[in-house]
Simulated scan of single mutants.
Amino acid sequence: MQVRIIAVGKIKERFLSEGIAEYEKRLLPYLKLSIMEIAEERRGVHASGGQEQLVKDREGERVLAAIPDRAYVVALDVRGKEVSSEALATRMHDWQLAGTNSIAVIIGGDLGLSDAVLARAALWLSLSPMTFTHQMARLILLEQLYRACRINSGEPYHK
């Protein structure tokens, strides 16, 4: 299975970069992973609601252009469905059984995702009812993908 994570913004904190690199390495035996960073749109500190919408729309255009053809699109969104690690593993297994070999997981910037990106997604997923930075969401997502792969391989994982 190929998983492309399309994320708005760069990872700036070293500790997050190191954690992301560790989970990228751990995922190598299980799936083909790629991470594409989309440039954040610049805006003023006190941007109006209209300016923020324009920022999301511009970032969204770049995100949509990065989605592979025929990919099953999962958008991380606070309004998305919350699932357990086991349920995520089951979904990934079901996608494989259905012949879905390309998954694109979208992580928006600090303003979230544009309506166009959300409309393109087949699934909206929430990592937690708590709020995380979009940089932390990338690390958490990778850990959960790794956990799901271990579950599906019948390997032990920490509960």
Rank of each mutant, 00 (worst) to 15 (best):
K10E: 15
I103D: 04
L16P: 00
I20W: 08
E24W: 03
M92W: 10
K12N: 11
V45Y: 12
W124G: 12
T131F: 05
E59I: 11
K10W: 10
D115Y: 11
C149S: 15
L123A: 14
S102V: 10
V83A: 15
S48G: 12
L28Q: 15
Y23P: 00
Q53P: 01
M136C: 04
S17E: 14
M130S: 10
D77E: 09
Q51M: 14
L118V: 07
L141C: 04
D115L: 15
L33Y: 01
L113D: 05
N101D: 15
K32S: 14
R58G: 07
P156N: 05
C149D: 09
Q96M: 07
L54P: 00
P68M: 11
R4S: 14
K25C: 04
T131Q: 04
P29K: 00
A75I: 09
R147T: 10
A65H: 09
L33Q: 01
P68W: 07
V3T: 11
G80K: 12
V3G: 01
A98V: 05
Y30H: 02
T100Y: 09
L28T: 11
V74E: 11
I151S: 07
F15G: 00
V63Y: 06
R70T: 03
E59H: 08
A7Y: 02
A87I: 06
A104I: 11
M130T: 10
L113A: 05
P129I: 11
A137Q: 01
G19D: 03
H134M: 01
P29D: 00
H46D: 13
E155I: 02
A65F: 05
L97V: 06
E40R: 12
D57Y: 09
E18C: 01
E40H: 08
V45G: 11
I38T: 01
R58M: 13
Y157P: 04
V8I: 12
S34R: 13
Q96K: 12
L27F: 00
S85N: 14
Q144W: 00
I6S: 02
V105Q: 07
G80C: 13
L113T: 01
V8E: 02
L64P: 10
G99T: 08
Y23K: 04
H158M: 08
L118P: 05
L125K: 02
A7M: 12
A7R: 02
G109W: 08
S34K: 13
K32N: 13
G80H: 12
R138Y: 00
R120H: 10
L31N: 00
M92Y: 10
E41T: 13
V83M: 15
H93G: 09
T131E: 05
A89R: 01
I6C: 02
A71Y: 08
A116Q: 15
V74Y: 07
L127F: 11
I151Y: 03
L127S: 10
D110M: 08
V3F: 05
C149T: 09
K81V: 14
A87Y: 05
L139S: 03
E22K: 06
M36V: 15
S126M: 09
I107F: 03
I5P: 00
